[in-house]
Design a protein around this nucleic acid. Structure first.
Length: 562
RNA sequence: GCCCCUGUAGCUCAGAGGAUAGAGCAUCGGUUUCCUAAACCGAGGGUCACAGGUUCGAGUCCUGUCAGGGGCGCCA
């Protein structure tokens, strides 16, 4: 049973809110109406730890000078255990300084929460599905997929920490046109490997991977497919290929520490009748239009522009879009996820609006679906910037990347870039400068923490009892403040559906610890220092929980030695 | 042509409408009788692409321009 933490900023916001309604009730201040109280970290030491601009924002509705409102708010919130002092500052900020005594007590709060420190009670068990990567099984994952994998798993992790019931899912696009081209290519490669002259199909997957895989198949399965009818051979080979390729993808993501809860097969869904059911359902709702021999999902507008094909003409099967509608019907209507988050590559941009519209057409609230698009990753090869084309076979694989750079560095770098930003991955730089990489700075702090606790253990220092009021050094208080930010970081990550803040928080936390480490000696030969040592050991222990949890949310290891 | 994303220090990138715009790397100078020097301290470096607008207040919101990328398929 995790012990959820109360994020300090939410707590302070609640106090300000309370102050406003109390002041309204007592006639001290006019009605505030519904306002969103934002608590910011203060800039500059003279402004305390936190501040709010509430008074500035309320000045208009209240018809009062901001500073006047700020003074009333400050007076009304001053009397809480967390708050040492609250005061108004020009032009109308309310500044808040946290209580030293309360901060010291947080060391125990953090240690009581232990490995669960950081968890917050926000999701209340609401179910969230995070679908990410979902590349069709036509080859190994490349660096672009690695980015999606890191982003998706990071989002899943923060939602879990915030009390949501999270399912991590991979949609295996093993049906459709692309797979047909792929299977035709595989057949041609297999025949070539067996010494037959067979031309590649149009738009073939030219990558080396298929050449290799065809050879593997030939070695493993023999040349029996050469003797079969082409259609039958392709069907059998396709089944083997999907299984092998999905296994390979599973191994690829595992290199980044990712494990999925569900691998959802498009083909299995199509064969199960779920697709037909979904189309009939849409038909009943009057959303399906027949035209040009195909079946379309009708768009919003009057014309035909907004319509999208769900079933191909000429007896063709479902389109990717059609399949995805059925898939999302399954997510929401069959499996009852409260929320669905899809992490897609930017090349799926055109698919966003129509899928959201389709969810609406299914009679579901499109707000329950969040789609994160991550922009392209390019990489540097000498002076040249190279982009990927999977079909042409130009790529750096996830495997190569993780092999060069390492999973931890890879995750840290991908996670610290906003999904919206295109990024250039200089692999050589990332690998060669790995010792100066921030990722090692963060992990080094954890190794130092572990080292101190190890040494304390060897010296048989007893520190279960400690007088925490001895933690008064600025570096100690700074470290405590940093530690207790973690619940806030998780809350805001969930609100923004992103994990980008985590590596920055991790770095700041590591920096605060290192500052403490440089200035405050923990273990000492002098018996007179023992009380301080005990208190500091408890603080170090609290820092360990916060840092280890942050690293774990990022999917990174927390080394005890480096 | 239309839609979306991006433009912040030499480079890679953060930046919840608020206070003096930050970090890492790179550059320059310094630090080790002490729990891990993969560390620490200091310095330089900015017209937040450009032009208007909204606001008490804009890197952040709106409009336009320029530049880079992506999308606009009975591909996925």
């Amino acid at each position: 049973m995790p012990i959820p933490s109360m994020p300090i900023r939410e707590q302070l916001a609640a106090y300000v809110q309370q102050a406003l309604s109390d002041s309204e009730a007592s006639g001290d201040l006019p009605a505030a109406g519904s306002v969103d109280i934002v608590i910011d970290k203060s800039k500059g030491d003279e402004n305390g730890d936190f501040g709010t601009n509430a008074a500035l924002r309320l000045a208009r509705t209240m018809q009062l000078a901001p500073i006047e409102i700020a003074e009333k708010i400050a007076a009304a919130i001053a009397d809480h255990p967390e708050i040492e002092r609250a005061w108004a500052a020009a032009p109308g900020f309310v500044n808040i300084q946290l209580s030293e005594k309360w901060l010291q007590a947080q060391v125990t709060v953090v240690r009581d929460a232990g490995a669960d420190f950081g968890s917050v009670d926000k999701g209340h068990g609401e179910t969230v599905q995070v679908e990410f990567v979902s590349v069709n099984p036509t080859g190994p994952l490349h660096v672009g997929h690695a980015r999606g994998a890191v982003i998706g798993s990071g989002i899943a992790n923060v939602f879990e920490a915030a009390g949501y019931d999270v399912t991590r899912e991979y949609y295996v696009n093993d049906g459709g046109n692309q797979m047909r081209v792929y299977n035709d290519t595989l057949y041609a490669r297999y025949m070539q490997a067996a010494g037959h002259e067979v031309a590649l199909p149009e738009g073939a997957y030219e990558g080396e991977y298929l050449v290799e895989y065809a050879k593997t198949l030939l070695e493993r399965e023999g040349d029996r497919f050469t003797k079969m009818d082409r259609t039958d051979a392709i069907a059998e080979m396709a089944a083997l290929s999907v299984k092998d390729t999905v296994d390979m993808i599973r191994e690829d993501v595992a290199l980044l520490g990712i494990e999925y809860d569900v691998w959802f097969s498009e083909l299995a869904m199509l064969n199960s009748g779920k697709f037909d059911q979904t189309i009939r359902y849409l038909e009943d709702r009057g959303q399906i239009v027949d035209r040009d021999g195909a079946r379309w999902l009708s768009g919003d507008g009057e014309g035909e522009d907004g319509d999208n094909v769900v079933i191909r003409s000429g007896g063709g099967g479902p389109t990717y879009f059609g399949g995805d509608i059925a898939y999302h019907h399954d997510k929401f209507a069959e499996r009852h996820f409260d929320r669905v988050i899809n992490v897609w590559g930017a090349d799926h941009h055109g698919h966003v609006a129509r899928l959201k519209a389709a969810v609406g057409a299914l009679g579901l609230d499109p707000e329950r679906l969040t789609i994160i698009l991550n922009q392209m990753v390019s990489f540097k090869e000498g002076e040249e910037t190279v982009r990927f084309s999977k079909r042409k076979g130009v790529m750096v694989t996830l495997r190569e990347l993780v092999g060069e750079v390492g999973s931890d560095a890879c995750r840290y770098i991908f996670m610290s870039r906003s999904p919206d930003a295109q990024m250039e991955f200089d692999i050589e730089l990332a690998a060669s400068q790995s010792m100066d990489n921030p990722v090692y700075y963060v992990q080094y702090a954890h190794a130092r923490i572990s080292s101190i606790l190890r040494n304390a253990d060897e010296q048989e220092v007893e520190w279960e009892e400690a007088d925490l009021s001895l933690l008064t050094h600025p570096a100690e208080l700074e470290l405590i403040k940093r530690i207790i930010e973690l619940p806030d970081v998780i809350v805001s990550s969930v609100e923004r559906v992103e994990a980008t803040q985590l590596p920055y928080y991790a770095y700041e936390l590591a920096r605060s610890f290192t500052g403490f480490y440089e200035q405050c000696r923990v273990l000492s030969e002098d018996p007179d220092d023992l009380p301080v040592s005990r208190a500091r050991l408890q603080l170090v222990d609290a820092a360990r929980y916060a840092l280890a949890r942050t690293l774990s949310l990022m999917g990174m290891s927390a080394p005890e030695k480096m």
